[in-house]
């Protein structure tokens, strides 16, 4: 295949600012960022609590979480699909084939990553800070806000890992979103569709745009955390 055609397709997509294409990009970002955000709101405190708390079964939970980081997206998608289908337990909500369904599926994919990496980061930080924090009266769960704040740069990396998994993922959003044009079609499902239509340059062009977006977000996050980390030492 002509490499030039791929770049040309990618270039035309970006320069053309086709509203359909922009809609796809916006939806992709919206679904993925919302999923990461929700996973962060749940996963950061939970991961930190898991780092500090000692209770029976903790090791088992950690092992399970680490294993869930490798959960195939299709399996997560299928589970959400069966849950949200009209014939499933949450059917009456009518959420199947909506962006909300895609967000739910991606939260399930991202959450284990956020929790597991947060636990690691907070555990390391706690072993460094423990004496001082306990000395000034912040013991146990009361130390969590300080630890989350001081671990912010390492935690940003954890969220980026989650973002990467969600934005690259196609199996789950395809199943629960249905790849409906203009409604649940994301970058990755559009790539799948164009591939099946045999328009490989367009598919790869879309891939190139997705890659550039991911690269941009990572670069911004990396730069911000580097500057911040330099400031915080």
């Amino acid at each position: 295949m002509d490499v030039g055609a791929i770049f040309q397709a990618a270039f035309a997509l970006v320069v053309g600012l086709d509203p359909g294409f922009l809609g796809i990009v916006f939806l992709s970002l919206r679904v993925t960022l919302t999923a990461v955000l929700i996973a962060a709101l749940i996963g950061l405190p939970l991961g930190a609590a898991l780092a500090l708390a000692r209770f029976p079964g903790r090791a088992a939970i950690i092992v399970c979480l680490n294993a869930l980081m490798g959960l195939p997206p299709v399996v997560a998608g299928l589970a959400v699909f069966l849950l949200l289908s009209r014939s499933g337990p949450l059917g009456p909500l009518g959420l199947l084939f909506t962006p909300t369904a895609m967000i739910i599926a991606q939260v399930i994919l991202v959450l284990p990553i956020v929790i597991a990496l947060t636990r690691q980061v907070i555990e390391d930080l706690w072993s460094e800070y423990r004496d001082h924090l306990r000395s000034v009266g912040l013991d146990g769960l009361r130390a969590i806000p300080t630890l989350l704040f001081d671990g912010r740069f390492a935690l940003a990396t954890a969220l980026l890992a989650g973002f990467g998994r969600a934005s690259a993922e196609v199996g789950a959003v395809l199943i629960v979103g249905g790849n409906i044009a203009g409604y649940t079609r994301t970058m990755t499902t559009a790539i799948t569709l164009e591939t099946s239509k045999g328009d490989l340059p367009l598919a790869l062009g879309l891939g190139l745009v997705l890659l550039s977006l991911t690269l941009m977000i990572n670069a911004i996050a990396f730069g911000a955390s580097r500057i911040g980390a330099r400031y915080a030492g």
């Binding site: 919206r30 919302t34 955000l37 649940t184």
Partner: peptide, 11 residues
Amino acid sequence: TGIALAQAPAA
């Protein structure tokens, strides 16, 4: 931001 994003219509 999340709520705003979630509320915004896709199309």
